[in-house]
Structures are given as structure tokens and as C-alpha cells.
């Protein structure tokens, strides 16, 4: 590639990387693919997504079909993960359950993310009294014990999977709001934000056009912590009977309905238990890798 030249300002080849440009996303994916726990975690996340998307095509049995003739069968050739107390195929139920995990993870995190970003940016852009009001609200939410906050929201809305998602989402808002405010305040002091001010940009343009893109990496990193926690919380709520209700094959709900058979048929608990354990592990590994890749100190 030739370089534009004006007198005395010729730049030799090599000062700007003239290789075809790769977008940031592809660069990040490439680095993830080279990262060891990124590969393992990525594979786990991919498996969850595939199970959620194509679960109904993959399952050997209908997940809700009761077959009392084959109840509590141990894992074997016809039922790889065994069957539960109502003769339902556990493999099918576990595969089917992946969609609830994904649903919970995505929706509750989206609620927390959206609400937190809105409140945090409002506090920063508004400043003064707005800032104080918003942050006191956040403080009050944070002052509640996490579980108590969840229970309060569910008590208000009634137990269901949707409620559990909303509750976990709302409970996540203050964490995001605090992060957004803190990051935005520090970004606001950067010189390139000053540069926008010098050009005449208003608060709205600076907040949404300059500050928000700058804090996104930090938000993604935070999300990698929050999402597995949200999934786990929703499963715990289901286990307590406050989230997904039987016969829905949500993993937490599966655990609770089968737990009285643990002594005689370990697999009824092992199947959903391992599914939760492995998926959370996978999400965490993926999150670790994402943090390594996005952390500016590593790039």
C-alpha cells in the first residue's frame, strides 16, 4: 500500500500496519481460541447453546412423557442417564433443561445490565442531586441481603420461572449501576472526553457516544462473573420451589422433585446436579478466558 505524502511527512512502510484489518470481535475470538480455559469453557458454552437450540431434535424421548413402567431405571443402554420417579428419560430432560439455563442467564443478565447501565449513566450524566438520589437507591438495594431481596421480589410477583428471572435480574441491577458509575466517572476524566467537550459536545453525546463504548469491556468482564451467579441463583430459586415449577425440566426444579429418591436412585440427582455443576464450571472458565483476553493489561 502506498502512503499519502506531503512534504516532509513521508511515513515509511511499517509505521501503520497495512495488513487487512480484522475487526475487534474476530481478534478477540482468535485469542479466546488460543486460550486453554477459553477452549474448554467455550466448548461448554457451545454445547449448552446447541442443546438449547436443537434440544427438541436431539432428545431420544419426550422430556415430559411419563412412563411408570420404566420408573427409576439406572443408567443403561436405553436410558443413558437413567429415568426418574415418573419414568421420564433423564438425558432428554437434561438436554431440554439447557434452554432454561440459557433463558435465565440471558434474560436476567440483560435486565441487570440494562437497568444498571441506565441508572449508572443517569447518575453520572445528571450529577448533583440526581447522582445522590440514584446512588442512595442503589445503596438501599445493596443493603438488603441478596436472598432476601430475591424472596421479596418473588413474594410480590408470585413464583414462576419468569419471576425468578426477573427477580435475579433486578437483584443484579445495583451491582451494575455501581460499576457503571465508577467506570464512567474515571473515563470522564480522560483526555479524549475533554477533547469532545472542547469540540462542543453536550452531556448526552459524551455519555452515550464516548463514555459508554469505553466502559463496555469492563461491563463484559463483570458480566462474565455475574452470569454464572445468576444461573446458579435461578436454579437455587427453582430448588426452593420459587422458580421453575415441576414438571418443567429446569435443572434446579429437577433436583427438588427427585431429592427424596437420592438414597435408592443416585442418578436422579446426579444427572441435573452434574449438569448444573459442569455448565457453571464451563461458564466460569469461559469468563476467565474472556477476562484475560479483554483485560487491557494483557493486550
Amino acid at each position: 500500500m502506498t502512503h499519502q505524502t506531503t512534504p516532509g511527512t513521508l511515513a515509511p512502510a511499517g509505521t501503520v500496519d497495512h495488513r487487512p484489518r480484522r475487526s475487534g470481535l474476530i481478534r478477540i475470538l482468535r485469542r479466546l481460541a488460543r486460550h486453554r480455559s477459553g477452549r474448554i469453557g467455550g466448548a461448554a458454552v457451545l454445547v449448552i447453546i446447541l442443546m438449547a437450540a436443537f434440544g427438541s431434535l436431539l432428545v431420544p424421548y419426550a422430556p415430559l412423557k411419563i412412563d411408570m413402567a420404566h420408573r427409576l431405571l439406572p443408567p443403561g443402554a436405553s436410558h443413558w442417564f437413567g429415568t426418574d420417579e415418573l419414568g421420564r428419560d433423564l438425558l432428554s430432560r437434561v438436554i431440554f433443561g439447557a434452554r432454561y439455563l440459557l433463558l435465565v442467564g440471558v434474560y436476567s443478565t440483560a435486565i441487570a445490565f440494562g437497568g444498571g447501565v441506565l441508572l449508572g449513566l443517569l447518575a453520572v450524566a445528571g450529577g448533583g442531586w440526581t447522582d445522590m438520589l440514584v446512588m442512595r437507591l442503589v445503596d438501599i438495594m445493596l443493603a438488603f441481603p441478596y436472598v432476601l431481596l430475591l424472596l421479596a421480589i418473588i413474594a410480590a410477583l408470585g413464583p414462576s420461572l419468569t419471576t425468578a428471572m426477573v427477580a435475579v435480574g433486578i437483584a443484579g441491577i445495583p451491582g451494575y449501576a455501581r460499576l457503571v458509575r465508577g467506570e464512567a466517572l474515571s473515563v470522564r476524566e480522560r483526555e479524549y472526553v475533554d477533547a469532545m467537550r472542547v469540540l462542543g459536545a453536550g452531556t448526552l453525546r459524551i455519555t452515550l457516544g464516548t463514555i459508554l463504548p469505553s466502559i463496555l469491556p469492563a461491563l463484559v468482564i463483570y458480566t462474565s462473573y455475574v452470569m454464572p451467579l445468576a444461573v446458579l441463583s435461578a436454579s437455587a430459586l427453582s430448588f426452593l420451589g420459587l422458580g421453575a415449577q415441576p414438571p418443567l425440566p429446569e435443572w434446579g426444579a429437577m433436583l427438588v422433585s427427585s431429592r427424596s429418591f437420592l438414597a435408592t436412585a443416585w442418578w436422579v440427582v446426579a444427572a441435573p446436579g452434574m449438569a448444573i455443576f459442569l455448565s457453571i464450571l464451563g461458564l466460569n472458565l469461559f469468563g476467565n478466558a474472556l477476562r484475560d483476553v479483554l483485560d487491557p493489561k494483557h493486550s
Binding site: 516532509g8 513521508l10 511515513a11 515509511p12 511499517g14 509505521t15
Partner: peptide, 22 residues
């Protein structure tokens, strides 16, 4: 009297003198 161009990025391999382009 400015020296044109800028310092080559570290790691760039060059056949000849490293200052030759400038």
C-alpha cells in the same frame, strides 16, 4: 530539518540498514 517517517516498530525485520527508509 525533520527526519521523515517514524521509528520502525520493534520486531520489524529489514534486509538492509534499519535507518535506510528514513
Amino acid at each position: 530539518d525533520a527526519i521523515p517517517g517514524s521509528v520502525p516498530p520493534p520486531g520489524l525485520t529489514m534486509a538492509g540498514c534499519r535507518f535506510a527508509p528514513r
